[in-house]
Design a protein around this nucleic acid. Structure first.
Lengths: 256, 256
DNA sequence: CGTTCTATTGAGCAGAGTCAACACATGTGG
DNA sequence: CCACATGTGTTGACTCTGCTCAATAGAACG
């Protein structure tokens, strides 16, 4: 797989970086205009990736911090078996390799789910700047802190939730993420495959498919390919919590 | 539950902090002796906690970074259901609340598993120092980076592994942790209850109990109360990987 | 317009959860 | 120091969720 990406510098900084989490947190009040300019200058803006392309291969040495500018990515880890586990999906503004400090041997891969673009910050220069401006470190500590909390919730989901709770939880999460980016929380496209969702949630593909169907039959969601409409958000949310509602029995799923 | 802890300053810094991860990473070459002294001065050393006592309640405001000096702790998060998920166990030298930066509303609890002691660093003063010495931020970024990787592995475990793979994985992990602290990797005490292990691994207590028994029957481990001896480390490790070895069938477990 | 990738649907089975009884350990107060 | 209560762990029987295997149906891509 080739890394033949076009580097473009089409748009002005404030337009490009509008929804970037790094900017939101650190530039807002903390860095001066000139510091911001410097930060922007070391950043390589808007590098393009196609669907299926690896942004990072397992074993690659980390040399950049990546921020999603458009499109989406999935990150995964692998076992000695060759088994893989998707550890997260990343969308506009997300910082991808927050676990960047263990330079030497990272063992995760990152793949574009669709045509996408990233901004990337060279690690060396980033660390230089971080030395001068503690606000930058603070920003990253905050982002990493959030990432840890997110992963903890994921452990809870895979460890304690039943299949449809996980799916409901996933849909609500996607909805919220969309909303936080200023898009519709009720109609959106899932850029990942069913197999990605299943892998991420620790389920079989068939199970995800059946639960999507069950939710449709209950008019909670509408699914057309990767396009999702949430018709009854509250019902979906109550599925996550209420244990008794975990009552789409195997038979029910099977029979229709 | 009362927070009636005796604050003691019995031992010299280098003795107290011998195995502390914060020290290992940041003091070693990066901070000068006087900086180390300053760092040690803002730290409250060796505060004592009894079994079952909460170091942190869900909802508490974070005011310290805690480092385990002796004994062990468990951290958990809760859902609206009241459901809980143990997110990690912490031992000598571990930093407990690495997701410290979202001050306002943390939602996890931390409980002592046995008589234990911690060193604690006031967050405010920590952040002051971090501003002056970038090495401190770097250390914490590294620790957090590790934590993220650890959590990712946990997601893999709960999402992809079968029950006995998880238990084998857990035992190997505990063994490794012990070894890294200079203790025996083959004989050690599990300070947590079976129910803690089960919760952590996303299994039923009975399942953990049965798998412990199955491993004993195969002479892979010996269990006496909380005391564990690993008799065949390689067998245990091969259990984690090999899918075909996942062949202690339900019947096998049941019949003896 | 076929080939390949992806998703749906069905049938059967097994891994692990639930429920229940019991065993053992620890602790408490008389 | 014993009797009892409580907390923890083990074992068995049974059930169910969700996985596997298999067939089919749509989409997408060249």
């Amino acid at each position: 797989m080739q890394h033949s990406n076009k580097i473009t510098r089409l748009k002005a900084l404030d337009s490009i970086c509008n929804r970037c989490k790094v900017r939101n947190l650190c530039s807002a009040n903390i860095l001066s205009t000139s510091e911001r300019k410097k930060f922007s200058d070391i950043t390589i803006h808007d590098e393009r990736w196609d669907r299926g392309q690896h942004l990072l291969f397992p074993g690659d040495r980390l040399r950049f911090i990546y921020i999603v500018h458009s499109g989406s990515f999935k990150a995964y880890i692998t076992t000695v078996n060759g088994d893989t586990q998707i550890t997260g999906f990343y969308f506009q503004g997300d910082v991808i390799d927050l676990n960047f400090s263990n330079h030497e041997k990272q063992n995760y891969g990152v793949v574009a789910l669709e045509t996408a673009s990233v901004c990337k910050i060279p690690l060396v220069e980033f660390q230089e700047m971080a030395k001068q401006y503690p606000a930058i470190s603070n920003t990253f500590i905050k982002l990493m802190s959030r990432e840890i909390i997110l992963k903890q919730k994921m452990i809870l989901a895979t460890g304690k939730m039943k299949a449809e709770q996980r799916v409901a939880n996933f849909l609500v999460h996607m909805s919220t993420e969309n909303q936080s980016r200023g898009y519709s929380p009720v109609i959106f496209k899932l850029s990942m495959l069913r197999s990605d969702i299943a892998n991420y949630l620790g389920l079989a593909i068939e199970t995800v498919s059946r639960i999507f169907k069950a939710f449709q039959n209950k008019d909670i969601i509408s699914v057309e390919q990767h396009q999702i409409s949430i018709n009854d958000f509250e019902a979906l949310k109550s599925f996550i919590q209420d244990d008794t509602k975990t009552a789409i029995k195997a038979t029910t799923i099977a029979q229709k």
